[in-house]
Nucleic acid binder design. Structure first.
Lengths: 103, 103
DNA sequence: ATTGCCGTTGACTATTTTTGTCAAATTTAT
DNA sequence: ATAAATTTGACAAAAATAGTCAACGGCAAT
């Protein structure tokens, strides 16, 4: 199962491409320090950065985005006893909205 | 199905208790304007406020918290095509973490 | 029409969180 | 050892959030 964080995944991709932080940071136009922190989960990623990295590594964007979003979701319910219930409710509500989209 | 927002739910509860914003705001120690905005979804609620309101209205805390959390979750994936997938992945990951809690 | 009560709105400030920049320190590889 | 790569922390800038306040509008009763 995909138990890795998106940061770990991104570092893995970078290493597979044999690219140093320095180069990737230059390519996607952010500071090396920030990229380093993002890979290690010390800084939050943004959707924009994820997109640029997917492009840089030529990797499946959707897979990365799902990982990215799921992590943001998990962040919202961290340490919450009712987290799982909230997730289920959110799912039902999203589905409901979709069915009745546009009213 | 619970299709209402937590703001709507809270307003409903307040009205059922025949309490004016003014009084509830005083009870939970926030400004009337803020409470008004929270009930209408113009301002985000905080967990703390939800707890105080549940207490004020003597209403099921967990139900309100789940509603509150699910809304925060939905906020994270709003307009995201991959939202539902991300929710499912988040669920699986949360379960995984739970099973291996404490490592 | 005035008073009183309730809720809404917007402008403003303060506070907190997030983001960006940089250089020094540490680690890793050659 | 030295050079490249990465990590770390301090600091400033910017953005998001939260709080305060007063004016405004609706409505009912008189």
């Amino acid at each position: 199962m995909s138990t890795e964080t998106i940061g770990e995944k991104l570092r893995q991709l970078r290493e597979q491409n044999n690219l140093p932080l320095r180069k990737v940071a230059a390519l996607i136009d952010i500071d090396v320090a920030i990229l380093s922190k993002m890979e290690r989960g010390e800084r939050k990623l943004t959707k924009e950065i994820v997109l640029r990295l997917a492009d840089t590594y030529k990797y499946n964007v959707d897979e990365l985005l799902v990982l990215f979003l799921s992590e943001r979701i998990m962040y919202e319910i961290q340490d919450e006893a009712l987290g799982e219930k909230a997730l289920k409710v959110a799912e039902r509500r999203v589905k409901y909205l979709k069915e009745n989209k546009g009213k």
